[in-house]
């Protein structure tokens, strides 16, 4: 597998985490433009822990996810009474606060004669875990996909469980869910925190694969894209956002057919799909038909 292919496939895997994160929020009935903040928090926290403090990667990733989840809990609690466009704007504002905050973080230590650590807009280089441990990009890509399969397994499990039905009840009609004894606030928070953790995991992987991160990587366009992946691929199953990622990064960027015009093609695709398939390619109705077809055969 060429380096280019490994790079594109790895990117797809890492972006799939934030796409799944935005998808969870969409299923719970909210549009978040701020999942990139949790992705960034995961990246910075885990990057600091491995590059500056020499922590093992798995532990750094666990803490990166924990901090991202905690941030999601705080933001989720503050935005509980918001919905629709107000929730979307609140999440966007929070994400921009994090990004602008990271621009002013200058914490560097000297390691082997070199300054290592976040340096504001200059970024955070020397996240050298992958080199120090002789891990090849292909091996790291394998780690990405093993974790992605793990997250997907959890999501599929939840989707098939009563919890999955509860989440869809809350997303479909919170008032009705509440009238049926569902504590909507609790389940919204639960989904928000889980979404934050998944985005944090993706960010942790991204920092160690890219070895260099800067605040502007986690800008609003990353959030918009992650949201669009779910809307393209469909909200009927967790496979949906993966289709969105595959179409954008795998096809439009990876194949280079639309080189230079990728964003025009991507924007057009989103617009067309929102008109003709407002809940994406694999929406609930198509997933229902596929399930029935599988049951019959």
């Amino acid at each position: 597998m060429s380096d280019y292919v490994v790079s594109v496939v790895s990117n797809m895997g890492m972006i799939a985490f934030i796409a799944l994160s935005a998808y969870i929020l969409l299923v719970i009935g909210e549009i978040s433009f701020g999942q990139q903040a949790y992705f960034g928090i995961g990246a910075y926290i885990s990057g600091v822990l491995t590059a500056m403090w020499g922590w093992p990667l798995w532990l750094a990733m666990v803490l990166g996810c924990a901090v991202a989840g905690s941030a999601a809990l705080i933001i989720g609690s503050l935005t509980l009474r918001l919905s629709g466009i107000y929730f979307a704007i609140a999440t966007l504002s929070f994400a921009e606060m994090i990004r602008l905050g990271l621009l002013s973080v200058h914490v560097q230590v000297e390691i082997d004669g070199e300054l290592v650590g976040p340096e504001g807009a200059e970024g955070f280089g020397d996240i050298r875990w992958i080199f120090e441990n002789d891990v090849t990009p292909f091996e790291f890509m394998t780690v990405i996909y093993v974790l992605l399969v793990g997250v997907l397994t959890i999501l599929f499990w939840v989707e098939r469980s009563r919890l999955g039905t509860v989440i869809r009840m809350v997303g479909s009609d919170p008032l009705l869910a509440q009238a049926q004894g569902i504590d909507v606030v609790f389940y919204r928070l639960l989904a928000t925190v889980f979404a934050g953790i998944i985005a944090g995991l993706g960010g942790s992987l991204y920092a160690h694969f890219a070895t260099y991160i800067e605040p502007n990587v986690f800008n609003v366009m990353l959030g918009v894209h992650s949201l669009a992946y779910g809307l393209i691929g469909g909200l009927g199953t967790a496979v949906g956002p993966l289709i969105g990622v595959g179409l954008d990064i795998g096809f439009l960027e990876g194949v280079r057919v639309f080189q230079g015009y990728r964003m025009i093609a991507f924007g057009g695709l989103v617009a067309v799909l929102l008109i003709f398939m407002p809940r994406g390619i694999l929406d609930e109705e198509r997933v229902h038909r596929i399930k029935r077809w599988l049951e019959r055969s």
């Binding site: 869809r168 009840m169 479909s172 009609d173 009705l176 009238a179 609930e284 229902h288």
Partner: peptide, 10 residues
């Protein structure tokens, strides 16, 4: 509910 409330995609 007066105005029907169901989960239409279930």
């Amino acid at each position: 509910f007066q105005n029907l409330r169901l989960f239409p995609r279930m």
